[in-house]
Structure formats: structure tokens, C-alpha cells
Amino acid sequence: MTSDQPRPGRWAAVARASLAPARAFQAPSRTPLLQVLKTAVAAVVAWAVCSFVSGGQPPLFGAIAAIIVVQPSVNQSLSRAIERSIGVIAGVVVAYLVSLVFGAPSWLILLAIVLSLLVGWALRFPQSSTVQIPISAMLVLSIGAQTPGYAFERIIETVIGALIGVAVNWLVVPPVALKPAREAVTGLGREIAATMDSLATVLSAPTDEAYRTGMLVEARLLRPMQSKAQKAVDAAEESLRFNPRRTANRELLRENAELLTTLGIVTNRVLGMARAVTDHFDRTLPEEPNAVAIAEELRRAAHDLRLVLDEAAAGTAPDESTVDLEPALTAPLRAIVPDPQHWILIGSLLEDLRRVREEIVGASADLR
């Protein structure tokens, strides 16, 4: 291939670069198709129902309210319905008051926009309601001035559309976000177990600085994983509020939350152990009998943590590495007097290991 000919991967790189601006407007994942279909159903039903109260006008307010109200959870739908209705009512009131005071000059719509935004700010309305107020005021002043009863009909239409959106989202397979929460919590637990195995290797075998640095980085990454898992559990709790399937899934949500609490404590201890070992490491540490014993207990703790995660994953296949295995944690470790050079580190590790053991044993007992 000559130098002036394009390399095999050049066109692919050019294609990716050309698509980069378009991808900036794309979400990381598609909205579930069921959510799209529910939104479409809500809009169609709202249009049909609101046609009877729209006074000959296209029932745009009702259809828009239904589309906006269908959210990922029933609780969010209910909140958005209230916000949308309040925004429309406030906009209609603002439009009525300014027209009553100033008549119908050409600049009245601009004044209504400014006053509507100030009303939303003064009353501390959420952004969705604050934006809705000037929109409703503009429509009432521009169309309702020539159409008797327009303002009142738009309020009724919006409320009906919002109620239909909530009803459709409540009746048609309301979403439950328990699976992402379980996956996030389980992923955090398995990463903690892997970090404990790496820490055990540092304590019991010769390692280079690169390995120890990687172990510390691995431990520090537990923090963002913990935050991600907490957000996933919060989203699962949000999805169950006002959800007709709440009763059937409440126990699974409780187990997720309790397991995450346990893993949060273990994360703190494992991260502290990783920092202590990195800060106080010397080449003679793997020769310390207490360090070797602690390493063995860390491996047992990692083993039993994986068992806890498999027990918590109800209805899923257990990890192949832990099938048919029994808990491996022994009785509390009895340490001999450590070398004077290591006694502070050994004491710190023993206390952290004791707390880790208590949390894992407690979590296992709760699941049984």
C-alpha cells in the first residue's frame, strides 16, 4: 500500500468524527418502547376525551399535558400532573388580571410574560411550572381574547389530560426499577471482594509498586460505584411510590437497601486498609506472620461476601465460582505480638477486618 492511499482504519475514523456532532444530541440509551407507546396512548385518549370540552378548538392543551405527564414512574407522573395544572391555572389568572387592569394594548402579552416569570419565581415553583405560566398567559391573551370561555376551557382540558396521563402510566405496566438497583449493588459487592483479594496478595506475597498502586486505585474506585449504587436504589424506591406493584416488590427493595448499607460500611473499611497498607508498606511485611494470617482472612471474607451476593440475587443464577461452597470465615483471628516495625499497621488491619467480618456475617444471617 502506497503512502498516498488511505489506511484501512482511516475511513472508519473519518466516519466516527463526522457523526460526533450528531451523537452529542443522542441519549446514551433509548427510552423503553413501552414508555413511548404509553405516551402515545395517553395523547390519543386525551385528545378524544378533551374534544368534548374544547369548545370547537383543537384540544392541544389536553394532549400536551398527557404527553408531559407520562414519566418513568407513577410518582413522577403525579408530580408532573400537579405542576402542569398549577402552571396553567396561574397563567390563566395572570392573563385575566393584566387584561382587567390594562385592557388590551399590543404590549400586554410582553408584560404578561414578565409578570408570569416573576410569579413563578416568587412562589418558588419548579421550572416546569414556571415555564408553563407565561405560555398559558400568552395563549389566553392571543386567542382567548376573541373566544369567550377560552381560559376556563383550557384549564379543564389540561386537568383532564394530566389525569389521563397519570391513569395510563398507573394502569399499563407501571415501571419498576429494581433490576438496575440489584445489578449496581451486586457489582459494588463483587468489586469489594476483588479488592480484598488484591489486598491479601499484597500482604502475603512479594509485589511491585505498580501492583500496589493498582490495588489502591481499585479501592478508590469503590466510592463512585457506591454512589452509583445509591442512586440506583433511590431510583428503585422512586419507581415504587404509588405503584400498584409496590406490595409485591417492597421486600426486594428493602433487601437492596440493607445490603447497600452493609457494603457501604465494608467499603469504608477496605478503602482504609488499602490506604494503610500502601502508606506503611515495606518489603518485610509479607514475612510478618500476622500479615499472612490477615491475608488469609481477607480471602475468606471475599469468598463469603460473594456468597452473600449470590444469596441476595434471588431468582438469578449464582456465580460459578461460588456454587455449592460453604461460608469460609473462621473464628476471630488470634494475633501474636507483631514486629515492632509493623505493630501499628497490624493493629489497624485487625480492627478493620473485625468490622468487615461482622458486617458480612450479619448480612448472611439476615438473608437466611
Rank of each mutant, 00 (worst) to 15 (best):
Y211D: 05
E153S: 13
A122G: 11
Q230W: 03
R246H: 13
Q127L: 12
G91E: 06
R250S: 13
L309Q: 03
G187N: 07
Q57E: 14
E351Q: 12
T330W: 10
S142D: 14
Q5C: 06
P134R: 05
I143V: 15
G144I: 09
V356P: 00
G161K: 09
D282P: 01
T186L: 10
L345F: 02
I109P: 01
A90H: 00
D366K: 13
V41S: 12
E326F: 09
L325S: 13
L37E: 10
S321H: 05
L118T: 03
A48I: 08
A17Q: 14
W121A: 13
G91L: 07
I336E: 12
G161E: 10
E157T: 00
A331T: 08
L141P: 01
D279N: 11
Y150F: 15
V131M: 09
A257S: 14
V233F: 04
R357N: 09
L216V: 14
K179W: 02
G144T: 07
D339L: 14
V94H: 02
L216P: 00
A181C: 08
I89W: 03
R355V: 14
E153I: 01
A95H: 02
Y150W: 05
R223D: 13
A194W: 03
S142G: 10
I294H: 02
P8T: 07
Q26F: 06
E287A: 14
V44H: 04
W11M: 15
W121I: 11
S51Y: 13
I68H: 02
V49L: 14
L307V: 01
E296I: 04
N75H: 15
L221N: 13
D279F: 10
I133V: 15
V266P: 01
V292D: 09
L163P: 00
P327M: 09
Q35Y: 11
N249V: 06
P32D: 13
G214S: 02
S364A: 15
M196N: 01
V92M: 08
K231Q: 15
P244Y: 08
M138H: 01
